[in-house]
Amino acid sequence: MSDVLLQSLITGVTIGSAYALVGLGFAIIFNVSDVVNFAQGEFVMVGAMSAVSLLAVGVPFAVALFLALVIAVCIGLILEKFAIEPAKSATVVSTIIITIGASIFLRGLALLIWGKDFHSLPAFSGETPIHIGSATLTPQSMWVMGVTAVLVFLVHQFFNRTITGKALLACSANPIAASLIGIPVKRMMLFAYGLSALLGGAAGLLIAPIAFTSYDAGMMLGLKGFAAAILGGLGNPMGAVAGGVVLGVLESLGAGLISSGYKDAIAFIILLLVLFFKPQGFFGKAGEERV
């Protein structure tokens, strides 16, 4: 049984890292613009699918990964410029619908461009697993966890140490005041979408060698990322990261120890319970409503 436990933990942290990156993207955008971007999962798909296509036409591996990230970021910027910015005064319900629409639209586009097949990316550094007891850890899992840790650290430093990062946080606290003291709020919004898309795209590249990818691979990851962000408390980027890892581990322990058929239900029931009893998530700050 301890093998199952250990293996479930390893798997959970790996998948949870991907959720964490997606959830971090949710949190950053929410922080700056009060919008929950349901198209976040599509960045994951765009990143992975672009890399697959680039590799197929003979682009060297590292260059392909880099270009795929650039493409994901571009999609993020386009999304902000043409779908979010024009609907500036929209309500919560409308922004939810706009971003869900964007997500469906991107999926439709991906279907036309890339077709319906599943694709895989080669693992970054071989597939020889490391054995810990009878549980195993693949090199790709280590890539996923390692790169996630680095990215999360960088984002954390960025928000706390750099002027741009602090400016971003100021936009979220009070956009009018922020613009009055000369922070270019519009540009900050663009920046936030670009950064989120970058994180989403990175998650896609990291996870594709494990889980494959297809035009509709983004939706489920997007939902899980959203759940991660909610679990951690929407306004808190580091909370989203913790939420992602917790969600991944919950799912995988649910599958390993309780019932694999009901594992998603278990994860969502726990999510609902958290929402019911701690409505602002683990680390969220209580919001006030405007009259």
Partner: peptide
């Protein structure tokens, strides 16, 4: 169809 549904929503 998917594309159009998304475009309508946005």
């Amino acid at each position: 169809e998917v594309l159009i549904l998304g475009a309508i929503m946005m």
